[in-house]
């Protein structure tokens, strides 16, 4: 299933509802549902914050295939960037050296079995494959 959402943090409520509908329709457990919400929020908010020049809307698609969920965010326009090259954060730093930036992508990597970030002309597709927990 695919939903299209305005490039705005206020879209998050609708995105969470969309994930909830997908989870119900595919009998997805709570742990997987939490993971999907986390991954999609992180990727969506990154596009809102760092690609404000992109088109007004971002499409999100979700598909269940056997014991995996394939999620994708489809963005058009804006600044070229490859998520998979983002710097890894050091989660072992003491509190005084810790900064909040980068934690989101670190956690997406922890949850994902596979991440692809592809750009063809102005169309960017971020695909994450993650396994169903139960």
């Amino acid at each position: 299933m695919t939903g299209t959402f305005r490039r705005d943090l206020h879209s998050l409520g609708k995105i969470f509802d969309f994930i909830g509908e997908f989870a119900n329709a595919n009998t997805i457990d709570n742990s997987t549902s939490f993971k999907l919400k986390f991954i999609i929020e992180e990727l969506f908010t990154n596009l809102v914050k760092y690609n404000s020049e992109g088109e007004d809307t971002i499409a999100v698609s979700l598909e269940k295939e056997n014991h995996k969920v394939i999620l994708a965010l489809h963005d058009v326009g804006g600044v070229p960037f490859d998520l998979t090259t983002a710097r890894e954060v050091d989660i072992h730093q003491p509190l005084q050296d810790r900064k909040p930036g980068g934690l989101g992508i670190h956690l997406v990597r922890k949850f994902a079995d596979e991440i692809r970030d592809e750009r063809v002309n102005k169309k960017r597709t971020i695909t994450v494959i993650t396994h169903v927990e139960q």
Binding site: F34, L95, Q96, L103, G104
Partner: peptide, 18 residues
Amino acid sequence: YVSSAGLGVLLMTQKRLR
């Protein structure tokens, strides 16, 4: 639920309090 944005608020508050 908490996202990295929420973790950031908790982390910065912890720094200030410590």
